[in-house]
């Protein structure tokens, strides 16, 4: 299945997804959406790694992708636990309610 996709295009796609993830984190007010957008960003970097790995035909890219998956899983689990706690304490997931510490 030889296909000559230029790596550049893939990296641009990864960059675009990355930036969309960033936009998601900044724009959305609800913590869940923030976590989702962070997942998108991690996915984008996973894609970049796999693309780089396939460009050098080395398995390192996919190994790195696996570790990214592991990290994403761990991070999401703790993130959701935190979301539960926040919801339990503040009855809402709006990030602007968590502003006590400032100055």
């Amino acid at each position: 299945m030889k296909s000559s996709i230029s790596i550049e295009m893939v990296m641009l796609l990864a960059g675009l997804l990355f930036v969309l993830g960033i936009a998601g984190v900044i724009i959305r007010k609800n913590i869940i959406f923030m976590l989702l957008s962070v997942e998108v960003m991690l996915n984008a970097s996973g894609l970049a790694f796999v693309a780089a790995g396939s460009r050098w035909a080395q398995p390192d890219g996919q190994v790195m992708f696996i570790f990214i998956l592991a990290m994403a899983a761990a991070e999401v689990s703790i993130g959701l636990a935190l979301i539960l706690q926040i919801y339990h304490q503040h009855k809402s997931l709006d990030i602007d309610k968590l502003k006590e510490m400032k100055g």
């Binding site: 900044i26 923030m34 602007d96 502003k99 100055g103």
Partner: peptide, 17 residues
């Protein structure tokens, strides 16, 4: 400067960006 420490997470992320 202490005004920039506004406490809102969105502001911190924007700072990072």
């Amino acid at each position: 400067l202490s005004f920039t420490q506004s406490g809102s997470l969105r502001w911190y992320v924007m700072g990072l960006v």
